[in-house]
């Protein structure tokens, strides 16, 4: 059984290694890099949304702060990407601790509007602290990462850089969720008062998940900054938060494959919806609305459930990894 699962992952990893060489244009390869970065953002959002069950509307703050932090450290201090990205993760984590410590005292809708207010405040700072961020015109000429003197600049090398981080983060999240801490998260999501009654320190666990989530979002922001080499305060805008929410809810909250599928769909759909122009975001909104109305578990669970029912009907016994 264990070997079977390993084989499945191996196949997936090989598919993703070969993928960028199979796609026809640099535009699509570009989309693949983007999908990886957004997958990180979606995974970070899901940690708060899917595992401790809090509706956060402030994820763009950590994404944007991570982007600015890594860009500014790398450019102004001339420090290589590998250290500046750690700086971004740490700074996003500290900010996450601060915001989480305040907003996680509030529940439900109050938590949501507080995180949104914090994101707006961060955007305000990015727009107006001109000496540091260069304001609304954006921050340009961010250095590319390099390894052994080779610049990681074009799509394929950057794809692999992102891919490594995505795999790393998936492993970290998976281990976290399977650990006693992860089970405490789920207990908090399902029954907060009951979790408290059995001795789980609810607030501490919530803050912890929030900080880890902020750090992953900061990493995603840093990767974004060094890939596009241009960032603007728009990165802290609500559209990135809504994008992450769509990926999580459409794919399936509280499930890693679900969120990854959500990120994939979100990044591939623009290509098919290209003629629609600005109508695209409206279509995404409709998809989000339909998903929460008719598929509250997300696409992944619906498909997995459908396959399961189908195989049962045929009388086959198919190994199925459990979906929590």
């Amino acid at each position: 059984m264990k070997r079977l699962i390993d084989k499945k992952y191996l196949v997936l990893i090989i598919v993703f290694i070969v993928l960028p060489f199979l796609v026809p244009s640099s535009y699509v390869r570009n989309l693949l890099v983007l999908a990886g970065i957004f997958a990180l953002l979606a995974l970070s959002t899901d940690l708060v949304l899917g595992y401790i069950g809090q509706l956060t509307l402030g994820q763009s703050a950590f994404f944007g702060v991570g982007a600015y932090a890594s860009a500014i450290i790398a450019k102004e201090l001339g420090i290589p990407f590998w250290i500046s990205i750690i700086g971004a993760i740490v700074i996003a984590g500290v900010l996450g601790y601060f915001i989480g410590f305040i907003s996680l005292r509030l529940r439900g809708g109050y938590f949501a509007i507080t995180t949104l207010a914090f994101a707006q405040i961060m955007k305000l700072i990015a727009n107006n602290w001109i000496e540091l961020t260069r304001g609304p015109m954006g921050y340009t000429k961010i250095p590319s990462p390099s390894i052994f003197g080779l610049e990681i600049k074009s799509e394929i090398p950057y794809y692999f850089l992102t891919f490594i981080f995505v795999v790393l983060i998936i492993i970290i999240i998976k281990r976290l969720i399977d650990s006693p801490t992860g089970r405490a998260y789920l207990a908090i999501r399902e029954q907060e008062d009951l979790a408290r009654a059995v001795g789980i320190d609810v607030f501490r666990h919530k803050v912890q998940a929030f900080v880890i989530s902020a750090m992953i979002a900061g990493l995603a922001g840093g990767l974004y900054a060094h890939y596009f080499r241009f960032i603007s305060p728009d990165l802290l805008g609500i559209q990135y938060t809504s994008m992450a929410l769509m990926m999580v809810f459409v794919g399936g909250r509280g499930s890693i494959p679900g969120v990854l599928i959500g990120a994939g769909i979100y990044t591939v759909l623009p290509e098919t919806l290209r003629m629609a122009g600005t109508l695209r975001m409206s279509i995404f909104g409709v998809i989000l609305l339909l998903c929460i109305m008719f598929m509250p578990g997300g696409i992944y669970r619906s498909i997995a459930g459908w396959i399961k029912r189908k195989s049962k009907k045929n009388g086959n016994i198919v190994q199925q990894t459990t979906v929590s």
């Binding site: 995404f284 609305l289 929460i292």
Partner: peptide
């Protein structure tokens, strides 16, 4: 979240 989607 639904009202959020409506606003988008």
């Amino acid at each position: 979240l639904g009202t959020f989607a409506i606003s988008i």
